[in-house]
Design a protein around this nucleic acid. Structure first.
Lengths: 329, 329
DNA sequence: TCGAATTAGTAATTCGTTTTAGTAAGATTA
DNA sequence: TAATCTTACTAAAACGAATTACTAATTCGA
């Protein structure tokens, strides 16, 4: 900056005023032009570390995730976060801990040393977490997870509404016997989607038939077997709501193997909206999307208002899961 | 740091020496203990911006990508890069440009202002790029792409070896008539894998039959049709090498619809190793993996030696694509 | 037993900015 | 015509560490 000042024949202060467009400083247009010319001539570029030191603002947010960055599922959370951060001209420091506590700890230390202006703590699956306590030293938002006592703001998908939406979509297509192949591992998604399924049935005056609700590991193979059983039922379901898209793959195979057509004979709806699967299946899979991108955006939005000094109670923000219509129902 | 010094009854200099374990400084053990005690008592943590300003090291790498962070394909590149950076106690600044030039430009400026010690320029698909010239201001490595004049070091997958490996795996299983369903968009993957396919046939003394080589858009639907044609051939192929796993999904459907079994009647091999698809298909898909994770690692490794001041010629590093055996051949 | 090492520290400077508190010259007002 | 405003700048003091160049007190060696 001193070099620029010397070349432009002004003081370093003036350069700073010009560069930052300081309103309270009166700098003539000619001087401004000379300064910019000097800047370009020298290829000078401000040093963000020096600036940050002085202003006490790092213009940086931290994102600590377990497996998010590994998985196609949840990358869009990072993307949403990054783009919102970008809009506020902040950058995102990303660390994937692979679930290891020690990595998480040092990542947090590193980020605090860099004076991040906020922290996102994200998980691949929606579940309860116990983040390290130092997370509270800066504004923090949980992404796709929550703490037991709800003492930290969190952004989570609305599992129940998602389950409701899927079921309702099938009911509206005229289905009366709707099977639900649920996950086995107890987690909010399992309970929430089931609750949504029941609620939708109830709202439309349909009976809840326990024989139509199955649980199995969330993979195509196991679902194949479960769906085959369902199809052999005397009064077989005309629609199958799968806990996720991977399971829908198995359902497709079972239905096709049984010589039935999708959606004419049996409708299938999934969950997650994994483009890679849903768009490639034949017929393309109608499914409910996990709003990962929006969740990332909202989390950063919240972080930004929080770090602007606003005092908000730690609310759980529930993001709706929209229906993505393709051709399987 | 001054507060810590005051509490420990030493000078700020001493605190710095203790914190950084400076070898040339003689500090007694008692003093060290007192300093650490004061640090913990005050919850002090060094300010990375101040440190970076003084040492002229940001301990940060930048990663600019087009769609990498959006796509399940290539996220593992980021992960590999991040973990290698982590090992060198550096952090990664990630920006996804969605292919927009203006975002790319400002991202680059931001990163240069933050004095990143190296830059990765990554693309989702392996293809030629024209990165902004300022990229050369710091050590830079291209990831999954290359420049026309090869003036920048690049890390790319070995498409040809991948094609060879896939074909060879089929030949070794006794297949003689091997179809190859290639991509339509001209890109290194298309040419490289085809070349590998031809080379393998030649090496094992098999004829190259042009009727067995088809091209179609890389999606399941179009592949379905192409594979059906292949299966109706008078002397139908006993194995199908698909340009990627999405296409393999279509191939599976066509083969099953034709009443044939995989792999007994027709073997299928894919490319990309998209866990989500390959592991969920029935039977699980044998495929060739794009070594994204290793590519990310290698890129950072290279960046680190480069920013250590070593002068290396801009070599193209070709990373092998390993065979991932499942059950479809 | 005295000069040289060694041990255990400290004072002051520097990194590259932002920001506060000025100043000096000319224009405007009472 | 003197006091006050503007306009167009500048000097100097932070920000929070790392680093260099010391000093004072011990210990050691011949």
């Amino acid at each position: 900056m001193y070099d620029v000042a010397r070349l432009a024949g002004v003081s370093q202060t003036t350069v700073s005023f010009v560069v930052n467009n300081v309103a309270s400083a009166a700098i003539s247009q000619e001087t401004r032009d000379r300064v910019w010319a000097a800047i370009h001539a020298l290829g000078w570029r401000p040093n963000a570390m020096a600036r940050g030191l002085r202003t006490r603002h790092s213009q940086t947010l931290g994102l600590i995730s377990d497996e998010v960055a590994t998985s196609p599922y949840a990358v869009r959370m990072i993307l949403g976060a990054q783009e919102k951060a970008w809009a506020g001209s902040q950058m995102l420091l990303v660390v994937n801990t692979s679930g290891q506590r020690d990595i998480e700890q040092t990542a947090l230390q590193f980020m605090l040393e860099r004076r991040v202006e906020g922290l996102l703590y994200a998980t691949m699956y929606h579940h309860e977490v116990v983040p390290p306590p130092e997370i509270g030293l800066v504004p923090a938002v949980l992404l796709n997870c929550f703490v037991a006592d709800r003492s930290l703001p969190a952004i989570v998908p609305d599992e129940q509404q998602g389950g409701y939406t899927a079921t309702e979509a099938l009911i509206r297509r005229g289905h009366r016997r709707i099977a639900f192949v649920n996950e086995t591992i107890p987690m909010p998604a399992l309970f929430g989607r089931l609750e949504g399924y029941r609620q939708a049935l109830a709202d439309y005056g349909l009976p809840f038939d326990p024989t139509l609700v199955r649980r199995c590991h969330s993979n195509a193979q196991d679902t194949f077997a479960v769906v085959r059983e369902l199809l052999e039922l005397p009064d077989r379901p005309t629609a199958i709501f799968c806990f996720n898209d991977k399971m829908a793959m198995g359902a497709y195979d079972a239905i096709k193997r049984a010589g039935l057509r999708i959606p004419q004979d049996v409708a299938v709806i999934g969950f997650d909206n994994l483009e890679l699967i849903a768009a490639q299946l034949y017929p393309p899979l109608t499914t409910v999307a996990l709003p990962h991108y929006e969740m990332g955006q909202r989390a950063v939005e919240l972080l930004q208002t929080l770090s602007a000094g606003e005092q908000l109670p730690p609310i759980q923000h529930t993001i709706p899961c929209p229906l993505v219509e393709r051709a399987s129902i």
